[in-house]
Design a protein around this nucleic acid. Structure first.
Lengths: 114, 114
DNA sequence: TCTATATATAAGTGAATTATTATATAAGCA
DNA sequence: TGCTTATATAATAATTCACTTATATATAGA
């Protein structure tokens, strides 16, 4: 079976976005869990605006989606994106990052968004 | 079968490198053909130093290899690189770029390096 | 309605990136 | 040896990027 292909220019744009440690980890986490900004802030020990700006870039190209839930905005991987198949095969080569969410839970910080 | 994984930090570095239209196309071309700098100069209509700097970055992380052949230096994909499996699955999602080399041949510019 | 929490956005700054120009190195050949 | 071709490297200038600080928006709850 031949994989669907994505224009080189568009692919380069996506790879540049994923070529950042924070965003790449975000996407890997989102592959198995939906998350809100405040969780990412804890996970990456980064400022809220920094995290917001990262997710915005992912949202702008359609890699992630947001949905509001009360005061929180939950981000999830957009599996309908034309880039998803490429991203998925990429993520398969990355080590699981669920331990980061586990750590949050142990600190009782995951619950803040439930 | 589980894919071999590559640390997130290292992966981000590789993806950043591939997140450039010129380098991404280079790697896709190298997936099916070895090439020298002068061919890339023609293909991308870029300056020789610009091309040299791009291949150098790919070489520095071990994605490509060089071997001298007379006055030319031939670049090839390093299939032994720890990043190769990830890169390979990426390249599967990109459209074939062989037409670029075909165009060179038609202009008689491919032969310059044989 | 007032306050707190979660998130977004705008402006500014410093660091990283890419191309250019100029120069160096190395091989081939007369 | 001197000239040409192929490539590399260094310095620099222009652009892009990611973070910070400050502020705005939106929801929840007293």
């Amino acid at each position: 079976m031949k994989a669907s292909t994505v224009e080189i220019d568009k692919s380069a744009t996506i790879l540049k976005l994923l070529g950042d440690k924070t965003r790449l980890t975000m996407v890997k986490i989102l592959d198995t869990n939906d998350c809100c900004v405040c969780e990412f802030v804890e996970i990456f020990q980064a400022s809220q605006p920094a995290i917001s700006q990262h997710v915005r870039k992912l949202k702008d190209v359609g890699i992630v989606r947001e949905k509001r839930r009360g005061q929180w905005i939950i981000y999830s991987l957009n599996r309908e994106s034309e880039y998803f198949p490429m991203i998925q095969s990429l993520l398969d080569h990355l080590p699981n990052q669920d331990f980061k969410l586990k750590e949050l839970e142990e600190q009782g910080l995951r619950i803040s968004c439930e």
